[in-house]
């Protein structure tokens, strides 16, 4: 008789939402995969399917500046910029995160300043920084104004992540370390940093990718020489060959490598920890 009763089958909503989720993932990745495939388009130079005579010619084309613009130069600026932003974001937002664990005058003001910096439209900020540099008689450059523009967006993100991480770090760890005779520096080095390290990797990932992919904030602030997203932007209007897709594939691959390094190192650390080293 028990056969007529339900023994823990999943509700219909599960299947409906699973379908929604699947469709969403296809929606997210489908176009990217299409671009990935079409970047191997043959000499027909067709921008749409089908793929004919797959070749690597468009990747070749990509690094030929006469044809498509200064892609390698843009890479050469975007990568170091992203790395600098990454390092500074980690350093600055981690130290600031620690400051916010205590009460101090101005904490609220600085916090709201960071939040405001996060939500102010990137274009507004771009104009502001350009105007500021004009008034100071400085020329805009990717490593000055561009760097600052990227930091104004990466730092608040990093700070929010640090809040989430440090919120879970009980002060009693540090107190225990002091009790056991650790100096302040040793406490940070041997107790705090190991605990928050996976979080710091997350901050680094954000710092890198926010800078590497940032468009509106870069637009007026990087000066005469484009970073990668700006280069792609110009290409969208004047390049009508699959070289554009090839460039998309290359940047996406770089992004995926960075993500893989970040997530991989987090996984490795967690594994080491659960094994007790």
């Amino acid at each position: 008789m028990s056969a007529s009763h339900s023994y823990g089958s999943r509700p219909w909503t599960f299947y409906a939402l699973a379908l929604l989720f699947t469709l969403f993932v296809i929606f997210l990745y489908g176009p990217m995969i299409a671009v990935l495939i079409l970047s191997f388009q043959g000499p027909s130079a067709s921008l749409v399917f089908p793929l004919r005579d797959p070749s690597l010619m468009w990747f070749d084309e990509l690094f030929n500046p006469r044809r498509v613009g200064d892609v390698s130069g843009a890479f050469g600026r975007s990568l170091p910029l992203a790395l600098i932003v990454m390092v500074l974001t980690v350093l600055i937002s981690v130290t600031a995160g620690f400051a916010f664990r205590r009460r101090f005058k101005g904490a609220t003001a600085i916090f709201y300043m960071a939040i405001a910096s996060l939500i102010v439209p990137g274009l507004v900020l771009s104009i502001g920084i350009l105007v500021t540099f004009r008034y100071l008689g400085l020329s805009a450059n990717w490593y000055t104004s561009g760097l600052g523009a990227h930091l104004s967006w990466a730092l608040p993100f990093g700070l929010l992540i640090m809040f989430a991480i440090l919120g879970r770090l009980s002060p009693s760890y540090e107190e225990a370390a002091y009790d056991l005779g650790a100096s302040k520096w040793r406490t940070v080095k041997d107790v705090v940093v190991p605990i928050v390290f996976p979080g710091m990797i997350a901050v680094a990932l954000f710092g890198f990718t926010l800078s590497y992919d940032e468009f509106p904030r870069s637009w007026l602030t990087v000066g005469t020489k484009n970073t990668l997203p700006l280069e792609i932007w110009t290409m969208t209007t004047n390049v009508t060959s699959p070289a554009l897709y090839a460039l998309g594939t290359v940047t996406t691959v770089v992004s995926f490598i960075v993500i893989a390094i970040a997530l991989g190192s987090i996984v490795i650390i967690q594994r080491k920890r659960s094994r007790g080293k």
Partner: peptide
């Protein structure tokens, strides 16, 4: 994570990637 990974890739590329899908001779129309 599967949902968040694209966030870490280029917005412009993700935008352009709709062209071969939605275009006149794109995947959907075909």
């Amino acid at each position: 994570l599967l949902c968040t990974v694209p966030f870490w890739t280029s917005n412009i590329i993700r935008m352009i990637s709709w062209r071969p899908v939605l275009g006149k001779e794109g995947l959907i129309n075909n």
